[in-house]
Amino acid sequence: MKIEYKINEPVSTDQFIELLKDSTLGERRPVDNRECMSGMISNSNLIVSAWHEGQLVGIARSVTDFHYACYLSDLAVSQNFQKLGIGKQLLSLTQAQLGPECKLILIAAPAANAYYEHIGFTHNPRCWVLDRS
């Protein structure tokens, strides 16, 4: 199976929503709020994507300064393409775009904690979230 990886390739809102739904990440994202989803994809400044025969099958969507910190907002791989190394390749290509001192930071879904630890991430319990009232 040939997977093509692309850096900052345009991804439509519909493609993004469908991938999130198909990866189960859609359960934790506002996929029914099209304006929000459009803003999420269009305002990311680093997108690494995986494509199979023209279909978006994986994405690493980040916001970064490229030198100190890179917040990986979404790492999603279509369920039919999981366990093929696509997620690891998306992470590797994301890191390749960053400066040598830039940290990759993410908030993992509870079910994904073991995955991130397995691939070398260090757990840091100091994350704080301020929701809008």
Rank of each mutant, 00 (worst) to 15 (best):
R61Y: 03
S62W: 01
T94M: 10
S49R: 02
N124Y: 13
Q79I: 12
C70T: 10
D32N: 15
I47T: 14
V48E: 01
I119R: 09
C70P: 03
I47H: 01
Q55R: 15
L98W: 10
T122R: 10
P100S: 13
M40Y: 12
C127F: 11
R34W: 01
S92H: 12
E27I: 10
S73H: 06
E27M: 12
N43Q: 13
L106K: 04
H123R: 15
L104S: 06
R126K: 14
A60E: 05
K6S: 12
P100A: 11
G99K: 05
M37L: 11
A112D: 07
I47A: 15
S12F: 01
A50Q: 05
V77T: 13
L19I: 07
I105S: 00
K2Q: 14
S78L: 05
V63W: 02
S44G: 14
Q79N: 13
E53R: 11
G58C: 07
I119H: 11
N45R: 05
F81W: 14
I3Y: 03
D32H: 13
R34S: 00
G39E: 08
Y116A: 09
A111G: 00
I41G: 02
A112L: 10
H118Q: 12
D131S: 12
R34Q: 08
I86V: 15
G26M: 08
A109G: 01
Y71R: 02
L90G: 02
S92I: 04
Y68A: 08
K21A: 09
N8F: 03
H123T: 09
F121S: 02
R29P: 01
P100W: 11
G54V: 08
S38R: 15
K88E: 11
V57M: 01
M37N: 06
L25Y: 08
Y116F: 15
A69M: 13
Q79M: 09
D131Q: 12
N43W: 00
Q97C: 15
H67N: 02
I41E: 06
R29N: 08
W128K: 10
L75R: 02
S44L: 02
M1C: 05
D74N: 14
Q79K: 15
I59F: 04
L25G: 00
L130M: 14
I119D: 03
E101S: 10
S44Q: 02
H52I: 01
V63L: 12
E35T: 13
Y68H: 11
K83S: 15
I86W: 08
K6H: 14
T64W: 03
H52Y: 09
I119M: 09
S23F: 04
I119V: 15
Y71G: 03
L75V: 09
T13Y: 00
A50S: 11
L72I: 04
Q97D: 03
E18G: 05
P125S: 11
I17C: 02
I17R: 04
V77Q: 07
P100I: 03
Y71E: 03
L56P: 09
C127D: 07
T13W: 01
N33P: 05
L91A: 09
P110F: 12
Q82V: 05
Q97K: 14
F81I: 00
F66K: 13
T94V: 13
L20A: 07
H123M: 03
G87D: 05
I119P: 12
A108Q: 04
Q15H: 10
L20Y: 02
G58R: 05
L106I: 06
I105L: 15
I17D: 00
E18P: 01
